[in-house]
């Protein structure tokens, strides 16, 4: 981290994910920013909208032997809780119009240090109105 960085600046930052994984590199490289960004102690959330919901689908498999030969980076989403990234907003309408429900998504959780390390879900299903409200509060939005 740079020495120039002002101490104590905490911004509300959202990573807006609207693209499917593998077909383009945006999902993977967005995740790389999220992981690096975790060290900056900001108020971070992720939003999965439109094809972005495909990023956190269960059952992704890209094995080198029989698959597409690319790195399966989906396990990284499961590690986000360990990086204190615990707010993953998923727009219900985006799931529904793709014939999906919350059951089709990975089980993403974090351990709440304020609640005796109880395991809690990181995924927050929101309606478009609720998501619009959350987006409206953001000071910085990273879109890739």
């Amino acid at each position: 981290m740079s020495e120039e960085l002002q101490e104590g600046v905490v911004k509300k930052m959202m990573y807006l994910n609207r693209k499917a994984p593998y077909g383009t590199v945006y999902a993977l490289e967005s995740l790389e920013v999220v992981l690096i960004g975790a060290a900056f102690d900001q108020d971070v959330s992720l939003a999965f909208v439109d094809d972005g919901v495909y990023q956190i689908l269960n059952g992704q498999n890209t094995t080198k032997d029989s698959g597409i030969g690319m790195k399966d980076f989906s396990p990284t989403y499961k590690a986000l809780g360990d990086y204190d990234i615990t707010k993953l907003y998923v727009e219900k309408e985006s799931l529904e119009e793709r014939g999906l429900s919350a059951d089709d998504l990975m089980d993403l959780v974090y351990e709440d240090e304020d609640d005796d390390w109880a395991e809690k879900p990181s995924i927050i299903l929101v309606s478009r109105e609720e998501l619009a409200d959350v987006m409206d509060e953001q000071e910085v939005v990273f879109s890739f």
Partner: peptide, 15 residues
């Protein structure tokens, strides 16, 4: 590194 992008997001008034 990517930290430079995060720093821009934090330090700049607008990204």
């Amino acid at each position: 590194g990517l930290g430079q992008l995060l720093e821009a997001g934090i330090q700049a008034d607008r990204l």
